[in-house]
Simulated scan of single mutants.
Amino acid sequence: MQILSTNIAKPTTIIFNGQQVITGIYKTPTNQPIYLGKETVEGDEVSDRKHHGGEFKACYLFSENQYPYWKKLYPHLDWDYGMFGENLTVKNLDETQIYIGDIYKIGNALVQITQPREPCFKFGVKFGTQNVLKQFINHGYPGTYTRVLEEGFVKNGDELKLIEKAQNSLTTFQFFNLFFSKEKNQEHLKLAIENEALPISKRKKLKAFLT
């Protein structure tokens, strides 16, 4: 896995249901190293602190491999890296192969895989239709947020080096499917609620589905 693009955003005002909303989803390539901090990427707009940023969503990674799929669905959009609001566009990031809790070295930073992205209305506004939210969920390749264990700079060309493999975990792909499926896989539920790489609030929410 290799970083192809580092992306950050300036605050952008959008209109949703007649209301003005400020968002940081309109990220664009910087062509420069970016600094991964403990709760956010330095210089990047995080407008909604309730749902973005913080310890378990400090940096968002999305796979470059998924771009062709979405370009085919939305060929009329102005495409560039950062389109999905990701800070890092990563070549060969595969949600079926990365596990919640895996620890990677990227540049000077040390990060831990935490949770996949859950699409919101701002994503729909950017793509011109709220239908994209369901398409994103059904497709099943949402990228991943990370916790930053050691702050540092990352740049284009940096490789993601696996430092520590998570034990008794589930993949980002499996977790994403678990979170949105009506019929919850009980074994996956047990793995998720015991995984300290996930925020307590999310683990408590999933615990309610244990039978």
Rank of each mutant, 00 (worst) to 15 (best):
D44K: 02
I98W: 03
D48I: 14
L77D: 05
Y60C: 11
N92G: 01
E95I: 01
F84L: 08
R49V: 15
C59I: 12
S63L: 08
D94K: 15
I98L: 05
I100D: 13
Y81P: 07
Y74D: 07
F84C: 00
Q97G: 02
K57G: 01
H52P: 11
D80Q: 15
H52L: 09
F84N: 00
A109N: 09
L110E: 14
K72C: 04
I106S: 02
E55A: 13
W70V: 09
G54R: 02
G53D: 09
F56M: 04
H51L: 12
H52C: 11
K50M: 12
K91F: 10
V46R: 05
D48L: 06
T89Q: 10
I100N: 14
E45Y: 00
D78V: 13
K38E: 13
K57M: 10
N108C: 00
F62R: 08
E86T: 03
M83V: 11
D80N: 15
Y81H: 15
K57D: 01
F84S: 01
D44Q: 02
E64C: 10
L61P: 04
N65Y: 04
L110D: 00
T96C: 04
V41K: 11
E39D: 14
L73F: 00
E86F: 02
H76I: 02
D94H: 14
K91D: 12
G43Y: 08
T40A: 14
L110C: 05
W70Y: 06
E39R: 06
E86N: 06
Y69I: 11
K105D: 03
F62P: 02
E42R: 12
L73W: 00
D48W: 06
L93Y: 06
Q66S: 12
D102H: 10
L73R: 14
I106F: 07
E45I: 00
I98F: 03
